[in-house]
C-alpha cells in the first residue's frame, strides 16, 4: 500500500469493522470481544496460536457462524450476516483451510461451483462451453497457469489448487473482501511465490481487501500490510508490518505466552 493510499483510506470508513465480537461453543469461550478493522485494498494478517480463535473469527466474518454478541460494520453500515450466501451478497468471500475444492470435479466446475452458468431457465442446464471459455480467460487474466481447465483438480499441485481456490473466491467483480485461511500451508517456496504474487496483484489491481489468517509469521510478512495478533479470543496487538519485525512479533508472542503460563500456574 502506498503512502497516498494510506492517507486516503485513513480519512474514510474502513471497508470492514467488527466490534466486541463474542462466540462460545458450549462452555468454551472462543472469542471474548474481538475488535478489528480492514482498510480498502489492504492485506491484513491475523496471527495467533492454535485455538486462539482465528478460524472462528473467519467463520463469523464469512457468515458461516453467527456470533453470540458484538457488531459488524461494512463501509460504516451495521450488518448482520446470517449465512455464507448473505456474506457473499455483501461482497465477502473466503478461501478455507480445507481448500473448498471438489477433487473429482474439473477446474472450471470448481470455479463455478454453486454459481454455474446455465441455460433453459428454471431447468438449470449447465452451460459447460461458456463456463470453460470463461474460466480459461479469467485464469489467463490473473496469470494462474494450469495445464487445462478440463482436468479434475485432484490432478493439480498444492499451489495450483490453492490458486484455483483463490481465483474462485475473487471471480466476481463485486468481491470486496477476501479471507484466506492459511493460504501458504504445506507449500514449497515456488508454490508459495505463486500465491503471494496472486494475492498481491489481486489486492493492488482489483482493490480487493484481504484478511490472511496464519500462524506462520514469515508468511504474514510476505503477504500483509498490517498484522493483528489474536490471543485468548481478543486482538492484543495491531501494527503495520513495516513498523514491526519478525523478531519483535516473535518476542511479543513468547512473552505473552510466558505470562499466560505463569498466570495459569499461579
Amino acid at each position: 500500500m502506498t503512502e497516498d493510499a494510506v492517507a486516503e483510506s485513513g480519512s474514510r470508513e474502513p471497508v470492514m469493522r467488527v466490534e466486541g465480537i463474542t462466540k462460545s461453543f458450549g462452555a468454551v469461550k472462543v472469542l471474548r470481544g474481538v475488535d478489528l478493522h480492514l482498510e480498502a485494498g489492504e492485506v491484513l494478517g491475523v496471527v495467533g496460536a492454535n485455538g486462539a480463535g482465528k478460524s472462528t473469527l473467519v467463520k463469523i466474518i464469512t457468515g458461516y457462524e453467527v456470533p453470540d454478541g458484538g457488531q459488524m460494520y461494512l463501509d460504516g453500515k451495521p450488518v448482520q450476516l446470517r449465512s455464507v450466501q448473505d456474506a457473499r451478497s455483501h461482497g465477502i468471500e473466503t478461501v478455507f483451510q480445507d481448500l473448498a475444492l471438489v477433487d473429482q470435479l474439473s477446474v472450471y466446475h470448481n470455479l463455478f461451483l454453486n454459481r454455474e452458468m446455465t441455460t433453459g431457465g428454471r431447468l438449470r442446464f449447465l452451460n459447460n462451453r461458456r463456463m470453460r471459455d470463461d474460466a480459461r480467460r479469467y485464469l489467463h487474466d490473473i496469470q494462474v497457469d494450469i495445464p487445462s481447465v478440463d482436468v479434475p483438480v485432484e490432478k493439480l499441485s498444492g499451489g495450483q489448487r490453492q490458486a484455483i481456490a483463490v481465483a474462485r473466491a475473487t471471480r466476481r467483480d463485486d468481491v470486496k473482501i477476501l479471507l484466506l485461511d492459511e493460504p501458504l500451508a504445506a507449500m514449497g517456496a515456488r508454490e508459495a511465490k505463486l500465491i503471494i504474487d496472486l494475492v498481491q496483484s489481486l489486492a493492488k489491481k482489483r482493490g480487493v481487501s484481504m484478511v490472511v489468517i496464519d500462524h506462520n509469521y514469515t508468511h504474514i510478512f510476505e503477504l500483509c500490510d498490517r498484522v493483528n495478533v489474536v490471543e485468548q479470543g481478543r486482538v492484543v496487538l495491531d501494527k503495520r508490518t513495516k513498523d514491526t519485525s519478525l523478531a519483535e512479533l516473535t518476542e511479543f508472542m513468547v512473552s505473552s505466552y510466558r505470562q499466560q503460563i505463569e498466570e495459569d500456574s499461579a
Binding site: 457473499r88 480445507d98 473448498a100 475444492l101 471438489v102 473429482q104 466446475h109 461451483l113 454453486n114 449447465l126
Partner: peptide, 22 residues
C-alpha cells in the same frame, strides 16, 4: 447436464466444500 447433477457429485466428493460454497 444440470446444476442439480453437478451438485450431487460435489456433495459426494467434498461435503464441507459444497456446504461452504452455499
Amino acid at each position: 447436464r444440470t446444476t442439480f447433477g453437478l451438485h450431487i457429485t460435489a456433495v459426494g466428493g467434498n461435503q464441507t466444500a459444497s456446504g461452504e460454497s452455499g
